[in-house]
């Protein structure tokens, strides 16, 4: 199976660099790390932007060494495992995270690109509207999902995870594309309204529970489907070939060959509208 192009490694990492000063298990809310917030600000002004260290209000400068200027290319380094909400609501520019990063990466983003070179926590790209997030490693639960109480999750954009993800990837997504090169947890695409989830590893149990429309593709082993999904046909979906080739052209070295095979189409969830589809690829003999 294909691997992710490490586009970030080829970048000129000019722009603003933030380096985490210390390692700490105390959660940090850093939604100020966002190109839109950095626009027109120099290093000192960026360092003065607010953040939360636990429940204490601090500034980015208290937590990070800030160097450089320019809003459209931000690099964040150091121990970020407990740093939340990087790129929250961003609409432009690029953020590169060089290590593992905490939850809510790129939630509500509408444009630009985030590249995480390590793993990412839960809620990557929650409620995303546009742009692209690429996580080289694993990601947690609820990738591209809707927050509790919300009826719609992702409404646009692309999320690519190079490793495995947890449960409920793409839950309640309305539009957009999520690509997982590894395995997924249970309930992928739960209550999905539309959009596409492509899984190259093993699709976890009970995918598409409650889905109305949308597409879940299992390129790997056949998943355990709910009884409310019904077999329709075995066919070769041309749109999938188009999808994978476009992804390849956009700089992600995702192998398009798996889309060329035959797929078994299951429709469901019949407890809902029943117009959702799970495509299960025939495995080569």
């Amino acid at each position: 199976m294909g691997c992710l192009a490490c586009a970030a490694l080829m970048l000129d990492r000019g722009g603003v660099t933030l380096y985490r000063k210390e390692s700490s298990p105390i959660p940090v809310e850093a939604d100020s790390i966002c190109p839109d917030r950095f626009l027109g600000r120099g290093p000192a002004e960026i360092a003065a932007l607010p953040a939360f260290y636990g429940r204490r209000r601090v500034t980015l400068g208290d937590l990070f060494e800030v160097e450089g200027a320019g809003a459209d290319n931000i690099t964040v380094s150091g121990d970020l495992r407990h740093v939340k909400k990087i790129g929250l609501g961003m609409s432009m520019g690029r953020i590169t995270v060089t290590g593992d990063v905490g939850p809510h990466l790129g939630a509500y983003m509408s444009g630009g690109e985030i590249s995480a070179e390590g793993t990412a926590g839960d809620w990557v790209g929650a409620h995303m509207k546009g742009g692209r997030i690429v996580v080289q490693g694993d990601a947690g639960h609820f990738v591209g999902a809707a927050y509790p109480g919300e009826t719609r999750g992702v409404t646009g954009g692309t999320i690519v995870v190079g490793g495995k993800v947890g449960g409920e990837v793409g839950a309640r997504m309305r539009r957009g594309l999520i690509v997982v090169l590894g395995d997924t947890g249970e309930f992928a695409g739960a209550h999905m309204i539309a959009g596409s989830i492509l899984v190259f590893g093993r699709l976890g149990a009970r995918p598409g529970a409650g889905m109305k429309r949308g597409t879940i593709v299992a390129f790997g082993d056949a998943p355990d489907l709910l009884p409310t999904f019904r077999y329709a046909c075995r066919f070769q979906p041309a749109f999938l070939r188009f999808h994978l080739r476009r992804l390849g052209e956009s700089g992600l070295s995702i192998d398009s060959e798996p889309a060329d095979g035959h797929f078994r189409r299951y429709l469901g969830d019949m407890n809902e509208l029943g117009k959702g589809e799970i495509l299960v690829r025939d495995q080569p003999q």
């Binding site: 539009r175 594309l177 596409s196 429309r213 597409t215 070769q236 979906p237 749109f239 188009f242």
Partner: peptide
């Protein structure tokens, strides 16, 4: 009513069910 669409990078494809599969 059984048609569906896919949107990628601003290009929308329509998938129309036909007797040999679907017309894109």
């Amino acid at each position: 009513g059984f048609q569906s669409s896919k949107l990628l990078d601003g290009r929308r494809l329509w998938r129309v069910p036909v007797m040999d599969g679907e017309f894109v």
